[in-house]
Design a protein around this nucleic acid. Structure first.
Lengths: 167, 167
DNA sequence: CGGTCGGCGTTAGTCAGACTAACGATTCTG
DNA sequence: CAGAATCGTTAGTCTGACTAACGCCGACCG
């Protein structure tokens, strides 16, 4: 919780502060370092995504889970974990949140009582549509500085990197 | 490293290792999502960088600080914070570590006793050379799947994104 | 000259995500 | 049937980003 200063209600956001954008001088070695560029770009991207989703009371994982459920249908948590790359230990709370919102249902799998079957509800589908819109908007936000061609290039290059993972 | 199941001795702890690389099925929506690609690529990159540096008992910020000091000379912590984008609160422990290793010296600024002057030692310069090598090696590791042209492209695109930050 | 404002370094603490360990319950396998 | 493996869950570690507050000092203002 935030203790508000009471007096001036406010502009909680008016951060007068750190000119983090200062960009005054970054050592060259760092400035061109590809891994650093990647890290900074992702940091900014993640921040924007997280903020945008937070505004509608969601998190990245919510989107991932909902989208995965819609595409592949009901699944066990283990399957969801594999498909979304969310650790199953973290998945628990994500599903709790989604279930609290009525977006998914979690019940025991009659076929294998160790498992849960997680399925999308009607509300979940609507929720997904909404998050789709939010996420799409952020893409433009993040990649605004690039034109369509460049975005395509970037996506292709990143895909190569990401896919090289398991190799 | 991987624990091999040796000879059926107990294997109590043999983590057969989650096939995180499984890549079985990722929802399309997610798979092409640029912000996600960026995030995943950065995650992998960061992990490799962190591991490589850990092997020589260093962290990313160590490199950033040493490189910045060499390029701009002795500076106050506030300046370092601006230039490296390390929050000054986090900078404290980084400098402690570097000072413990004898790589930097931190003394009061005679001109302004609020400030510290942080400067690079001879050992710090040697350290920087070493980290330079480590970091360079990781670049090849991370961006191995890309040829020189592609790496250039990627760097350019990312630079655009990163520089759009303050705009 | 005294006071207040602001920059400086530091401590502490929050929050999120990635990741590991262990455990009870269950099912599979030999 | 016994042991091994799987599933969901709890708890906890680690790192990085970020905020709040504080004591110290210097700058500026009246």
């Amino acid at each position: 919780m935030n203790e508000e200063a009471g007096a001036t209600i406010q502009d909680a956001g008016t951060a007068p502060a750190r000119p983090r954008t200062a960009r005054e001088g970054t050592a060259e070695r760092l400035q061109r370092l590809p891994t650093r560029l990647l890290s900074l770009a992702a940091l900014r991207s993640d921040r924007l995504v997280t903020e945008a989703l937070a505004r509608v009371d969601a998190r990245k994982w919510h989107y991932a889970v909902l989208a995965t459920l819609e595409q592949f249908g009901a699944a066990s948590q283990a399957q969801l974990s594999d498909r979304t790359r969310i650790y199953s230990s973290d998945l628990v709370s994500v599903l709790n949140e989604l279930a609290d919102g009525g977006f998914v249902e979690r019940g025991p799998d009659p076929a294998d009582r160790r498992r849960n079957v997680v399925s999308l509800t009607a509300a979940g589908k609507r929720r997904l549509r909404k998050l789709d819109r939010v996420v799409a908007a952020v893409q433009d936000d993040v990649f605004g500085p690039l034109d369509a061609t460049q975005r395509g290039q970037l996506a292709r290059l990143l895909t190569v990197l990401v896919d090289s993972e398991g190799a």
